[in-house]
Design a protein around this nucleic acid. Structure first.
Lengths: 144, 144
DNA sequence: CTCCTTTAGTTGACTTTGTCCACATTTGAT
DNA sequence: ATCAAATGTGGACAAAGTCAACTAAAGGAG
């Protein structure tokens, strides 16, 4: 890899840090943090979800995850149900209230995306989309 | 924008959060945080740099920035020199020691990039690079 | 089965990171 | 001359994240 390529990639990384930062700091008008939102999202995406899946997927310390989950449980956004097969594990799932919150967050997140792209032509949007998929597919197959 | 497009973009954002997270957690064998590294980087990139530039570019609270700068100064990585034209402002610049640290961080960052891309062919790497530049240019011209 | 290692999750104590607000000083505009 | 806005500082605090020790259960190997 030549210097220019590395330079461009690092520049992109700095740039995209800023883009993502924008979203994350627009902490939506719920009282929940990005991390909590991501936890809810991951729980809803999985048919079976344990704390440890989240720890790995979101790269969060397990003690910290434990506290996050306890908080979400105390606010009745999720429920834990101990597994019969392996009683160390707890199945995690969203409550009705948790699903509603996630819906709300999803709507807001979609709107953030729309805002970011407003002003671009649909062919430009498509170019970006395609570019994103290229990056994701190639890096994913390589490392993730 | 249709639902599928928004979906793909959000998926990319989640994915790239993970990629960036990898890097950020690896500021390893210096005792400095990613934020401190970014501050040093920005100071070195600018011919004239004031605290407020950093606050805006890096999206960091100004009281927090004040403390970061004080820490960096106390460790002799940067120096402040009060502006004659506007005595509220301090010119910021790297000391020799700061430059050396930044060099070290840059080398490590380059290596992280190389690691991430090892395993891909050079045409794949080029596709990714081009894709990144498309995304950056289009979004930058639109919003940033 | 028993012993041992590994895995899942919890807790306490702590550090780091980030936020909010009030404040001093200085500048620039009217 | 006055007043609003900009720049940076400091106190007090809250949120986010880390580390080590611990319980308890599960999965072997012999």
């Amino acid at each position: 890899m030549d210097k220019e390529t590395i330079y461009d990639i690092r520049q992109f990384n700095r740039f995209y840090t800023k883009v993502l930062g924008l979203f994350n700091n627009q902490i939506l008008d719920t009282n929940y943090s990005l991390t909590e939102a991501r936890v809810l999202f991951e729980i809803s995406e999985r048919t079976e979800c344990f704390a440890n899946n989240l720890v790995q997927e979101l790269n969060i310390d397990r003690s910290y995850m434990s506290r996050i989950l306890r908080k979400l449980e105390s606010e009745e956004l999720i429920e834990k149900k101990s597994s019969i097969i392996d009683s160390r594990k707890n199945f995690l799932f969203l409550t009705k209230k948790g699903e509603e919150l996630l819906d709300k967050i999803n709507i807001q997140s979609d709107e953030q995306i729309i805002q970011l792209f407003t002003g671009l032509t649909s062919s430009e949007i498509n170019e970006i989309r395609t570019s994103m998929m290229v990056i994701k597919e190639k890096l994913e197959k390589n490392k993730f």
